[in-house]
Design a protein around this nucleic acid. Structure first.
Length: 642
RNA sequence: GCCGUUGUAGCUCAGUGGUAGAGCACUUCCUUGGUAAGGAAGAGGUCGCGGGUUCGAUUCCCAUCAACGGCUCCA
């Protein structure tokens, strides 16, 4: 007999070999019906796998994390069965669950799938699901498995087998499909009630671009049709929130073929947002002891050879232009220019830390397939600054930059982000990273110390550092779920030497500064792209390109409307006047759609009393108040970043 | 860069081997209306660009550019 401990702490006794499904049935028939897998001693198991020892068991439903991945992984197998039915020679690589659904990478031997094929596969899957075939787990010795796939001529599964040992090789069969798989799986296909194959894409085998490209089919499935409907609705809402859609609708930015891919044009409203962001950054940086500089957009090749960027970055820089026998590059980063400013003047330890800030415009030749709205572009303006400090000042400076993120993120209400401590990979020293193992270790230790001291949650990731040092990246997600680095704080122990940067220390000796590269507000492009989605286009008052719209009831009150608008503008508020001969309902609607935070409705009463009828976007009528009171209120909100 | 899909009016999208349509937006006129769409008329496209097939291509084929979904790469 064995003891089974359930999540509520209760213990039940069973014969050895009991399955989680039997336990679930004992708890309730309803639970057994919706159970998809079970967590046995912390591992996710098949419901039908016998348990022979004492264990803690948690029955997983679809809604549980482990449950979803089991469910989706099983659906991937179901899809594979359908693929094998229509494309008998198909060879399968891996079919894991992902955040939303699953995919399977498959070699179809040159067959190209169309959207109609997906529908066809989907129908077949539904048919196979309805057969309610059980997923049957079998173990197999390695030699036997190798023989099986050798005969089948399946190099992909043979490759997978290489990494496995005897005793850990299991197969799963449902219906006519058998796959090498670690599992676990749901008990049978009948649980899968709703299926949607979402798209087809190419994916390099093992994620290496030198390898063959396999066909990847993405899909998602649910135990109930209603859940699929809700999911599709959510996708549609995300699409509405997409910054590319909002950017067009709200006239923030545009692209044009004649200008070129990845080169955004900022429309007046986009430019207005930029100005407000810069005002925030400049004011904050001034408070924190930064000084501003300006540098050209191009520089000679020699500077990028000196900085060490060319060997690492040449591919992602625009090709050089030749002038008088010299090569000039469009700058892809501001740091070398700033280093030159550091060395332009003799520096003493008394000058440090020196914090050089610039909203520099950079150009990066991103691969064409990488471009993505404003989030990934070829011309970008960075909230850039370089801090030159002594080793003993480093921790404090680095910490201050981290505090700056927190301060900014609070203003923008950014809560969903991950701080990533990006380290180097020792195997790539001398290739991707400057070859100086001791300094890597030392600086990574310094960064870790600061992070722990700042009490900020972070995760460490190898092989994500800059070539010149470790960094902290702040990761966010776009509306459609893509991950981006929104801000970065980097240590640079390499360039000071390359540029022969030094200051005179208190012992009258030359000493190298440590450099911090930081961009807490990212680039205008990525940050505004992110903010558009974050606010769903409804910018807070301080940041809105059009803060107040004055809407006269009819043109009899246009003169008063002008007076109100002019008063607002004189106070530095971005206000417009709707002079169209439209009805007030129409004016309100159009202004609501533009997502202008405040509407002031003015008619006879307001004109007589010197008041305005305030309407808040998305919230409706806020009542009447004197104009000067409203002005004070808006100025307060702007000042407080509300 | 690679795989796949798409490309018709400012936007969203119909449509066809015989040189094109809708809604919204735009312009003009009428309406002067108190909290999310008043009415009428009009203008606007060499159907992404370049070749080919054809008596004739926006439609079929090829190439190219761009966008989109992934992969690889990065703020």
């Amino acid at each position: 007999m064995i003891k089974i401990t359930l999540p509520d702490g209760s213990v039940r006794t069973y014969e050895a070999g009991v399955t989680a499904l039997q336990i679930a049935t004992d708890i309730s028939a309803g639970l057994a019906r919706v159970a998809v897998s079970a967590e046995v001693n912390g591992e996710v198991w098949d419901l039908t796998r016998p348990i022979y020892t004492d264990a803690t068991v948690k029955i997983l439903k679809f809604e549980d994390d482990g449950g979803k991945s089991t469910f989706w992984h099983s659906t991937a197998h179901l899809m594979a069965e359908a693929i094998e039915y229509y494309y008998p020679g198909a060879k399968f690589w891996v079919g894991p669950p992902v955040e939303n659904g699953f995919y399977y990478d498959v070699d179809l031997g040159g067959v190209k799938l169309t959207a109609e094929d997906l529908v066809k596969l989907e129908e077949k899957m539904k048919e196979l699901a309805a057969q309610d075939n059980p997923y049957i787990r079998t173990e197999m010795p390695k030699a036997e498995a190798v023989a099986y796939f050798t005969e089948k001529g399946d190099e992909y599964k043979l490759d997978l087998l290489q990494g496995l040992n005897d005793g850990e090789i299991t197969f799963y069969t449902q219906g006519k499909f058998t796959d090498l798989c670690r599992g676990p799986h749901i008990p049978s296909t009948g649980l899968i009630k709703a299926i949607k194959l979402t798209n087809i894409a190419g994916a390099y085998w093992k994620g290496d671009e030198r390898n063959k490209q396999l066909t990847r089919i993405y899909g998602i499935s649910f135990p109930k049709q209603q859940q699929l409907d809700e999911y599709l609705k959510m996708l549609e809402e995300a699409r509405q929130r997409d910054h590319r859609t909002l950017g067009r609708e709200l006239e923030i930015f545009t692209f044009d073929d004649d200008v070129g891919p990845g080169l955004p044009l900022w429309l007046p409203k986009g430019a207005a947002i930029i100005e407000k962001l810069e005002a925030l950054a400049k004011r904050t940086e001034k408070e924190q002891g930064y000084v501003r500089v300006k540098t050209p957009h191009i520089a000679r090749e020699s500077m990028y050879l000196r900085s060490g960027h060319l060997p690492y970055y040449a591919e992602s820089m625009f090709p050089p232009m030749e002038l008088d026998g010299n090569k000039y590059y469009l700058k892809a980063m501001n740091c070398p220019h700033h280093h030159k400013i550091f060395s332009a003047v003799q520096r003493s330890y008394r000058d440090l830390p020196l914090r050089l800030a610039e909203y520099g415009t950079c150009y990066r030749y991103e691969q064409s397939g990488e471009l993505f709205g404003l989030m990934r572009v070829r011309s970008l303006q960075m909230n850039d600054a370089h801090i030159y400090c002594t080793k003993s000042q480093f921790e404090e400076e680095f910490m201050k930059v981290n505090e700056l993120y927190v301060r900014y993120f609070k203003i923008f209400g950014i809560e969903k982000y991950v701080m990533r401590f990006s380290k180097h990979d020792p195997k790539k020293l001398g290739q991707k990273y400057i070859n100086n193992p001791e300094l890597w270790q030392e600086t990574e230790e310094m960064v870790r110390r600061v992070l722990i001291k700042s009490n900020l949650p972070f995760k460490e990731v190898a092989d994500e550092a800059a070539f010149y040092g470790p960094k902290i990246d702040i990761q966010i997600w776009s509306a459609i779920g893509r991950e981006f680095t929104i801000a970065t704080n980097q240590v640079d122990f390499a360039q000071a030497e390359r540029f022969d940067l030094y200051f005179t220390n208190e012992h009258n000796e030359k000493e190298r500064p440590i450099i911090i590269h930081r961009a807490p507000l990212s680039t205008h492009e990525r940050f505004i792209g992110f903010l558009l989605e974050h606010y769903a286009g409804k910018f807070p008052v301080w940041l809105a390109p059009e803060q107040v719209a004055v809407l006269p009831i009819s043109d009899k009150y246009l003169a008063y409307g002008r007076q109100v608008r002019d008063t607002l503008v004189k106070n530095g508020i971005d206000a417009t006047l709707d002079e169209r001969p439209e009805k007030i309902g129409r004016k309100i609607r159009d202004t609501e759609v533009r997502k202008v935070p405040y509407m002031l409705i003015v008619g006879e009463k307001e004109q007589e009393q010197g008041t305005v009828a305030v309407r808040r976007q998305g919230q409706g009528d806020q009542g009447v108040k004197p104009l000067n009171e409203f002005v004070e209120q808006v100025l307060y909100e702007i000042r407080e970043y509300k």
